[in-house]
């Protein structure tokens, strides 16, 4: 099990806390910070979907499901890339 925290500075600040399992699956993930999302509940739904992911495709699908959510202060594409990068770094090591 591997736990990582990243602080990402966009217009707003996002903290990404992620726990990866032995097979590099996402066991836990929290996206926190002083940003805005409409509707707010979609961030919790995104976290839930990402918690089941162990592949790039799964992460991309999870983000696709919140594509209609308005997120202010966060580069959502960059955030997605950071999560994919963490997962792929884990699988290649």
């Amino acid at each position: 099990m591997k736990s990582t925290s990243l602080v990402l500075r966009y217009v707003k600040t996002v903290k990404l806390d992620i726990i990866l399992g032995d097979k590099c699956e996402i066991l836990d993930l929290t996206i926190s910070g002083d940003f805005f999302a409409y509707p707010e509940e979609s961030i919790g739904e995104l976290e839930s979907k990402l918690r089941k992911c162990s592949s790039r495709v799964c992460i991309e699908e999870a983000f696709k499901e919140i594509s209609s959510t308005i997120v202010l202060g966060v580069d959502i594409e960059d955030l997605k890339s950071k999560i994919i990068s963490l997962l792929e770094t884990c699988t290649s090591s």
């Binding site: 903290k15 929290t30 996206i31 926190s32 910070g33 002083d34 999302a37 707010e40």
Partner: peptide, 10 residues
Amino acid sequence: IGYFQKIREA
């Protein structure tokens, strides 16, 4: 605190 903040960090 904001909806998405972690209280112990805010």
